[in-house]
Design a protein around this nucleic acid. Structure first.
Length: 573
RNA sequence: GGCGCGGUAGCUCAGUUGGUUAGAGCGAUCGACUCAUAAUCGAUAGGUCGGGAGUUCAAGUCUCCCCCACGCCA
């Protein structure tokens, strides 16, 4: 039994995530977690909210709440939506947890001991009215290049020129509008990633089986220009992990916090400590410490491409640079972006469909299936309401749902609601079982390789095999001439429903549960093969009672599609 | 401007280390069936694999140049 550690990129606390965020990390990670559990592997699947930084502070201020309260509330909101989407985290933690504070401070301390932390003095803009330092992009003013009056401190959106905040004419705070700004000297810590460059390069080069998307982004950052740059890991903010050197105070760093990108990935580890402290597990070290039992763990990370640099370079610098025996990631599965109807999904602009809205109009399985079977693996892909309707109706309603419906209703009408016992399997049945077994083996390989779209396509063709069989042996005709033979045909078809439920559960867990419930069984054993008395194809024995399930997937009508397309055409307010 | 990922049937995409008549799903057309969510099953049509040059007995698959789209960065 393999031991599988899975983490999904942690979503930022500020607001509800859209479908593009979902399909880029949490959803495929959940697919992989569910599959591995179904195969009997020991799985620890972790996710959390990423809570620190300026955007959270501003969002809290906007609704007039203390930032800690705001984050606590938003964490619960996100946890509830994740649960309703069927995301099967073993724990959904918080980067603002005490565990993460202590661990982040610990890493900073040991990195300093290893000579990988540099202290620098730099100039930062301070807003007296706001009582805080302003990140570059929160300073606005007139562009010295083109005269645009809403240029940001990092770049002018009008002429695209890169700027320094001190270049701006009549600079003001983007938060309050105040012009009472001053430049102050402030001290900061840098992670000396440049020192780790050769080691990271060798590590990345050894990962020949990673997606091209992952390695190409990592190599670009390693080799572009002057190579990997040191990175500031502290900020002049209040909301964050206080800067400490382990448990000791850090002279000169009073009142400062670690940068959100330093503490966020450390939460992957801290989350497992939260998992233990929540009494859900009893040993986090055997997942993370190679000196405490984690050497047989295989660790997979899932994320969108925008997160790749931090996971291939920054976080590994932290792990490797500590010179402590932490588990390093074995495989990084990265995704491109999902676009929405001709443009990008946008959290800040409220464009697209967000997770709560999606669940308001359809059950999670509809979304899970479409998003996963169209996951942006090789390139960006696009959500349109037409494609969504086509995919859901054809795959889920017509191919799978209708198969369950036609088999169970036919049996009920002709033989009653129990698995019929007559007849025996002949050559055609043997062939079907062999065909399905062969495809299951392919499906297993694709799932193990995290080939999400191909796995979905393979699963769909397994569903279709059932319809092909029924069409060919035509039990509705057979029953008139040879009822015993028809019973054998339907007995096999009913067993296919259980097999389909088990195979499909990672994609569509709710519908799979309905199928299992209808088949009146708790036998979730994975279909290993065709041979022997314990064959998956005879798991439901003759005489086993079942009920006809409710319609598994109602079709999306043209009227619904049009209404939703219109409702979600604008921006969310 | 640099870099990255793409450009394959109407649409969405597969096409390992170059090798027989380039594949799938959807859509279209025709047919079969009537158990079923007007579902299913079969068949057919449809592609000079972005353009050009080159290497090779052989290129969608390698090399070079160009064009287009998207993304990232400066």
């Amino acid at each position: 039994m393999a031991r599988i550690l899975i983490t999904s990129a942690i979503p930022y606390i500020n607001g509800i995530k859209h479908l593009g965020n979902l399909v880029g990390s949490q959803l495929p990670a959940d697919l992989f977690a569910r599959y591995n559990r179904a195969r009997g592997n020991e799985v620890l699947f972790l996710c959390a909210t990423d809570e620190h930084g300026t955007p959270a502070e501003l969002a809290a201020a906007k609704v007039g709440k203390p930032v800690a309260d705001y984050c606590a509330e938003m964490h619960d909101v996100q946890a509830d939506i994740a649960r309703r989407f069927g995301l099967s985290f073993d724990h959904f933690g918080r980067s603002s947890s005490d565990e993460n504070k202590a661990l982040t401070q610990h890493f900073a301390g040991v990195l300093a001991e290893q000579g990988l932390i540099a202290e620098t003095d730099e100039e930062q803009v301070y807003s007296n009215a706001d009582g805080r330092y302003l990140p570059d992009r929160y300073i606005e003013g007139t562009c010295p290049n083109c005269g645009y009056d809403k240029a940001r401190g990092d770049q002018c959106e009008n002429c695209t020129k890169q700027l320094d905040p001190i270049d701006l004419i009549e600079p003001r705070s983007a938060i309050s509008g105040s012009t009472d700004l001053e430049v102050r000297q402030t001290k900061h810590l840098y992670l000396r990633q440049s020192q780790m460059r050769a080691e990271l390069q060798a590590w990345i080069d050894s990962k020949t089986d990673w997606p091209v998307l992952t390695t190409s982004i990592a190599k670009k950052w390693l080799n572009d220009g002057d190579g990997l740059q040191d990175r500031g890991i502290t900020r002049d903010l209040e909301w964050g992990v206080p800067v400490k050197r382990g448990t000791e105070a850090w002279p000169g760093m009073e009142g400062k916090v670690f940068y959100v990108w330093f503490d966020a990935p450390i939460e992957y580890i801290a989350c497992s400590q939260e998992w233990v402290n929540a009494n859900k597990g009893d040993d986090w070290q055997r997942w993370w410490r190679t000196d405490a039992g984690a050497d047989d763990v295989t660790y997979y990370q899932f994320m969108g491409k925008d997160n790749v640099p931090f996971h291939t370079l920054s976080f590994p610098s932290t792990i490797l640079g500590s010179r402590e025996p932490w588990k390093l990631v074995d495989y990084i599965k990265s995704f491109n972006f999902l676009n929405y109807d001709g443009g990008q999904f946008s959290t800040s602009q409220g464009r697209g469909v967000f997770m709560d809205q999606a669940l308001d109009i359809l059950p999670a399985d509809y979304w899970r299936w479409w998003l996963l079977s169209n996951a942006p693996e090789t390139s960006d892909s696009e959500f349109t309401w037409e494609r969504f309707q086509d995919g859901v109706n054809k795959d889920l309603a017509d191919v799978l749902g209708n198969f369950v419906s036609r088999v169970t209703k036919f049996c009920r009408a002709k033989f009653g609601e129990e698995v019929p016992k007559g007849g025996s399997f002949g050559p055609r049945e043997t062939q079907l079982m062999a065909d399905i077994t062969g495809r299951i083996r392919t499906y297993e390989q694709l799932m193990a390789q995290m080939e999400v779209r191909k796995s979905a396509a393979e699963l769909r063709s397994i569903w279709a095999l059932g319809n092909e069989y029924l069409q060919e042996v035509a039990p509705w005709t057979t029953v008139k001439e040879d009822p015993e033979q028809a019973q054998a045909q339907i007995r096999l078809a009913l067993n296919l429903i259980r097999i389909y439920a088990v195979l499909s559960a990672p994609f569509i867990p709710t519908a799979a549960a309905s199928m299992m419930s209808g088949m009146n069984t708790l036998d979730f054993s994975w279909p290993e093969g065709v041979d022997g008395d314990d064959s998956a194809f005879t798991a439901l024995p003759a005489g086993h009672a079942f009920t006809v399930p409710e319609v598994l997937f109602a079709k999306i009508t043209d009227d619904q599609r049009k209404e939703w397309a219109e409702r979600f055409a604008g921006i969310r307010t």
